[in-house]
Nucleic acid binder design. Sequence first.
DNA 1: ATCGGCTCCTGAAACGTTTCAGATCGTGGT
DNA 2: ACCACGATCTGAAACGTTTCAGGAGCCGAT
Lengths: 331, 331
Amino acid sequence: MVGIKDVAKRAGVSIGTVSNVVNRPHVVAAATRSRVLSVIEELGYVRDESARQLRAGRSRVMGLLVLDLGNPFFVDVARGAEQAAHAEGLNIITCNSGQRSELEASYLAMFAEQRVRGVLLSPVATSGEALRTFRRTGTPYVFVDRKAPASEASSVSVDDVAGGALGGRHLLETGHRRIAFVNGPAILAQCRDREQGLRTALAGSGAELTVLEAIGLDVPSGRDAGARLLGTSPRPTAVFCANDLLALGVLQAMVGAGVRVPDEMAIVGYDDIEFAAAAAVPLTSVRQPARRLGRTAAELLLAETSDTKPERQAVVFTPELVVRESTRVRR
Amino acid sequence: MVGIKDVAKRAGVSIGTVSNVVNRPHVVAAATRSRVLSVIEELGYVRDESARQLRAGRSRVMGLLVLDLGNPFFVDVARGAEQAAHAEGLNIITCNSGQRSELEASYLAMFAEQRVRGVLLSPVATSGEALRTFRRTGTPYVFVDRKAPASEASSVSVDDVAGGALGGRHLLETGHRRIAFVNGPAILAQCRDREQGLRTALAGSGAELTVLEAIGLDVPSGRDAGARLLGTSPRPTAVFCANDLLALGVLQAMVGAGVRVPDEMAIVGYDDIEFAAAAAVPLTSVRQPARRLGRTAAELLLAETSDTKPERQAVVFTPELVVRESTRVRR
DNA sequence: ATCGGCTCCTGAAACGTTTCAGATCGTGGT
DNA sequence: ACCACGATCTGAAACGTTTCAGGAGCCGAT
């Protein structure tokens, strides 16, 4: 492996000069610079990031840990974060906890060993324990898609209670009185909050709510929940799902059973992923600004890594209802 | 930042002993070991991966660079690769070139600076230039979703010509004679091969083929292509798309224009992503074993990094047609 | 001629590990 | 009493960078 020493020897300069050519080209004379550059080219020298980082004491990457990369929502979050990081010359390594606490812990440990510049985290549970290391070492971290008290860390989230209420009100307005909610694992704050928002919206309306908890937040879990839903009696006339993947699964179950959507069963999803609009029956969904979420979180994190220590803040975006065929009222 | 030295001092041992406790616990006496471990716990020592890697000369991570993480197909590829890597105690960092050569080059450069253990690459173009560094340094790389001559590198791919033919034959069998192909950027080998397979299948059948090149391989590009398709006259009766995202876009355009699928326009996609089955009209698609692709590629790479230098190989999987509503013949 | 102030370059220290040759100590065999 | 040996630990070197104090050479002003 060719190192800076080899380049220095071959170009007849000191290693300090080679380093300067690479990092502060202006301080070295033009003639020397071009000679060194051509040797670098000739030998195919590539600087060793680990040595660089060891010396610098901090790395040039940020860690991003999301709940589920199989959900296009988080892919968009990641895109937004990456965009913001690149704008500052930093790289992001994205990891997928798959909603498993032990994987989350293992990735966070990896981030710590890598001495990442900062961590973006959409946590499974509270994860207080796993974050101790970052707190002690002063590595900043920002919660994504989960609100946190500003005393602990900055966070960027979308108001899930409002989102749940948005879906609930919409179903009431479209005339439904027997409503089901297909929720994901209650360990996730998002799921709890959406359910709470829905309950609030339905309170006092006289509407009847059935809650089904799905195993996961994915399409198969949705199919499964859909099948259970078909077995309940009296059958609800509308179902609100904690995310679009679940909603797509429920929709498949309905289509498979010959239940007409929205006539016999209206469906509302959450996230408004790209595929919601392309579904068998285009899905009404609660839209979240995924990309913006990621970008803002990364920007907050970048601000915290700068020398000027800014205030921590909890940014909360507001979701928006997108009405499509799956809840359309037929006259 | 607490380092191995601090632990050593506090525990009253040498740094060598601390290192041994962490890396080869069996060589240190039980009493010492537990004393050191409790100091590690107390001080919150986390070893510095960059120093470790600098000393070791090689890292514990593999790089994976895919064409588009917005495509669930590649998310599955990444999952498969990650699974195989974890089984060997390695981490994977996944990056997204978004089909942009310059981003591809930049990520590959990053991999080189990180001294990754190996590289999994689904290349945009041939990228011969960018790979020179890896060739010189002996860093193994494996092509994913792209066949390569075994003389250059191992590769794991799916037979795209066969896949194109599969779709073509299916459309012929279901009675279509005016067929459109919505292709992605011709720079991608996958796109060229699928088109070629389709052409081969149609050859001599008397069927007429129209090829539209989409700007990207995503849903909006598909919508755009769909709109163009609606303007052609005589209008084809079937359209084959280079991937499912395009197909979903085309489908949206058809639904939006009131064109019935499959009666007035049959649609075949490619990849069989999860959302294909949940689409407005469930999509017939050419299925690829995405997860297996990633897993196999990672295994090949791992084998090449082991001391026993195995033969390079070009693994080629065979795609499979999944017939759904979008090409169903109505009687 | 001398000196201050440039510009350009050198050499060495430091970053936090791992590894390895050897030091030390106790034990059991002769 | 001596030796060989294993078990356990130490101390220093090495990995490839960046950084920084300072040295060398040169120019223009005094």
